[in-house]
């Protein structure tokens, strides 16, 4: 299982093209809200879920996607669901 920091690094890189303000990622943490702090809109959030599925080889259900509010939520989901 990948370490949390490594997963978080990959998640940040997945988020990067969808975040209009690159500076917002410079201080990202597990508590960073994807919608509120990174100002990612809901359409881009669907894209992010698809990218996470591809990058980590996992399937994310609607209910799981609905629970992803923060960067930490995405990392936790990946670590619970993902493969090494």
């Amino acid at each position: 299982m990948e370490q949390q920091a490594e997963v978080m690094g990959k998640v940040v890189e997945i988020l990067r093209p969808f975040v209009k303000n690159a500076d917002a990622l410079s201080s990202v943490s597990m508590e960073t809200s994807i919608l509120k702090d990174l100002k990612v809109n809901s359409a881009r959030l669907v894209d992010i879920v698809l990218e996470i599925e591809d990058a980590f080889g996992i399937a994310v259900s609607d209910e799981q996607a609905d629970q992803v509010k923060t960067v930490g939520d995405a990392v936790t989901l990946i670590m619970k669901t993902g493969k090494a």
């Binding site: 969808f18 359409a43 669907v46 894209d47 698809l50 990218e51």
Partner: peptide, 21 residues
């Protein structure tokens, strides 16, 4: 929705986006 601000990724992963939405 601003049609000029649509994520290009939505076009690339269009079919999966459609199935999800």
């Amino acid at each position: 929705v601003d049609l000029d601000d649509v994520s290009p990724a939505s076009e690339r992963t269009r079919q999966r986006f459609i199935e999800r939405v």
